[in-house]
């Protein structure tokens, strides 16, 4: 083989190996499928409350990590459940939020998160009944929280018995709790939201995996001028 031919073989072999390495590393670093941003800014007239509906599931049931716990959001344009935790919201607007909680619960590591904080009226409703505090040592405990740390907003998501829904999106036939609350978006900016229950089973202190990966138990609110 000529010198040029050998050089080409070495080069191709190098590129193949390097490509495999990059692919492998990328798979490790990007465990979830990066999502877009679900836009809620054009769903209501200016100044009117925006309706935001999400569900929590014990296991997403698809993708790279089918066993991971996750949030899903109801796309206001398609009406379908999207596996996406980045939401674009109008600034200084009331957000009426509805959460369908399909996951089980347990006592909280920090009962501080059993308290409803930062919502309008500082309360929420659980299956139609208003509440301000949920004692996580009672009933099925608390499965998750929906919290926006920068707004000091936190609402406990009360758990259901067992985890009968194994594939998202869960259907209303499955046991679930419905929680509603409202909050007002601040001025334009990016605000992260997260769950404060260390619910990533199998990870140290329950805070790895789904708790540390976008599109599962945390995301961003992209608040834009309305």
């Amino acid at each position: 083989m000529s010198k040029g031919g050998r050089l080409a073989v070495v080069l191709v072999a190098f590129l193949v190996v390097a490509g495999l390495v990059v692919f492998g590393v990328a798979q490790l670093l990007v465990p979830g499928v990066p999502g877009g941003v679900v836009n809620f800014t054009d769903t209501q007239a200016a100044g009117q409350p925006v309706h935001l509906t999400v569900q929590t599931v014990g296991s997403i049931g698809f993708g790279n990590h089918p066993t991971w716990v996750s949030y899903l959001v109801k796309n206001p344009h398609t009406g379908k459940w999207d596996h996406d935790t980045s939401w674009e919201l109008p600034a200084n607007t009331v957000i009426d939020m509805t959460v369908y909680q399909y996951d089980s619960g347990s006592p909280l590591r920090n009962q501080e998160w059993g308290q409803v904080q930062g919502t309008i009226g500082r309360d929420a409703t659980l299956n139609g009944k208003s509440f301000k505090v949920y004692d996580s040592y009672t009933g099925n405990g608390v499965g998750h929280t929906f919290a926006i740390p920068a707004l000091n907003l936190s609402v406990p998501m009360v758990g259901v018995a067992g985890n009968p829904c194994a594939v998202a999106p869960c259907h209303f036939n499955s046991p679930h709790n419905i929680e509603t609350f409202s909050f007002k978006t601040p001025g334009p900016g990016s605000y992260n939201w997260q769950c404060f229950v260390p619910c990533a089973l199998g990870y140290l202190f329950g805070n790895g995996g789904a708790m540390s990966t976008q599109n599962y138990m945390g995301g961003e609110l992209e608040v834009v001028a309305s």
Binding site: P107, R109, G143, P198
Partner: peptide, 11 residues
Amino acid sequence: VPDANGAAGGY
């Protein structure tokens, strides 16, 4: 002390 079970435990 975090719950021995790790995830979702009491403190």
